[in-house]
Design a protein around this nucleic acid. Sequence first.
RNA 1: GGCAUCAUAGCCAAGUGGCUAAGGCAGGAGCCUGCAAAGCUCUGAUCCCCGGUUCGAAUCCGGGUGGUGCCUCCA
Length: 462
Amino acid sequence: MYIYNSHTKQKEKFVPIKDNDVKVYVCGPTVYDDAHLGHARSSISFDLLRRVLKANGYNVTFVKNFTDIDDKIINKINTTGKTLQEITQHYIDSYLHDMGALGVQRADIEPKATESLDAMFELINILKTKGYTYELNGDIYFDTSKDENYCSLSHKCQDDAESRVSIEGKKHPADFALWKGCKGDGDVCFDSPFGKGRPGWHIECSAMIKKHIAYEGEFEIDIHGGGADLFFPHHENEEAQSSCAYGGHLAKYWMHNGFVNINGEKMSKSLGNSFFIKDALKVYDGEILRFYLMGTHYRAGLNFNEEDLLASKKRLDKLYRLKKRIYGLNKTNKDKDFEDRLLQAMNDDLNISKALAVIDEFIASANDELDKNPKDKSLKQKINSNINFIHNLLGIGGKDAYEYFQMGIDDDTKEKIEALIAKRDKAKKEKNFEIADQIRDGLKELGIAISDTPNGTIWEKI
RNA sequence: GGCAUCAUAGCCAAGUGGCUAAGGCAGGAGCCUGCAAAGCUCUGAUCCCCGGUUCGAAUCCGGGUGGUGCCUCCA
């Protein structure tokens, strides 16, 4: 397996730190609002990584945190009158629900910042003792000038003179708060060895990694992931804290997913073009959204566009139409060659385009063979096995093939459609094609497409 | 302003030194069908521009142009 390491800026062969185990930490959301398409893309990207690692036989421990203390959460507390717990739990549930709809598997460990304070205290204490910190207005800052390796991770730092950041009393623009002293009314404060206050943003990830999955030695974990925006300063700062406190480096491989843009520009609330997953799910099935969002390589930017999404859906439809042709089959017949080719594609830094091409070629040849040998049981079992493999590896193709094409249609309507089809079949038998075609046109106007097959007439929602 | 990153057919998107530049959507032709739909087969690009390296470049180097991102919370 090969992974593009954003630290070294090149594709590297993936070799776990220890035996067959792989420790992965992905930066999760700050839970102050519903999840948007960007969260979806990041989640799906690392969900694919996790599935591919497992398919390669690795024993994966996957950690994704929830940042449940932050300025924006405090704002929400002050504007809504709700408690921190009420707000964060609501958005955690909402996030997990939306990701579930997108076929993202739950992490093995889901730590919260507010439940990891002890680990943060330990880390801050070590940094204090080693002389990497200074105090300012009741806050504790990390002094980046004391870390001679600062910026060796992202290479995105710059001279003070070029920085747009205001200094605000900090010794250097890049210095960042490890602990923020309590600011009084309206603030949310926790007891700590440094007085009442709350953690800075970057400290939690380093602390949680140490607490839950870190190795002793050159690298604490195998893979650290997150959105491209987190590379600097968030990940740079995590690396700085962890390496200064514990020696070694935080992660062996760093992975960053590209952004979702809308109409060519970054999706963000200030631009008024953000797109919540829960709203998207009202219009599109989660699996269709997943398939669309994962169709562009995880490192590339993705420009969200409804036409592309529909084109992408048509590609997924083909998988389900094939699945229909072997409907009800339980037995499988392993197709080693197909599995190898598909996995090999994904092993190349999650090359989804290559993988989808392998799948499309499989679908075409399977349809062709089924046309020629409609009763070949071994062939059907092979197809069944391959679809199962695709489902496990990519998280698509797992639904009931008929339900997939009939989503969002209630039972009443289904009965009406079936009745019309029966009526049409009768007309067809009587060679009354004019009536048959009228019924078909009528269904089409209702958004229902029908096709005559050797096994009878079937229908799909258009 | 500084630093990244990208630029492949109408659209989406692989390919990063060498057979005829993957795959999908849309379009065209054919087979199949009562007619359709679905499915299958066939069909399209010399790779933003200029210069260079090389026997050979979409692929490496230099210079342009354009897009996006980061530098402030952000997936």
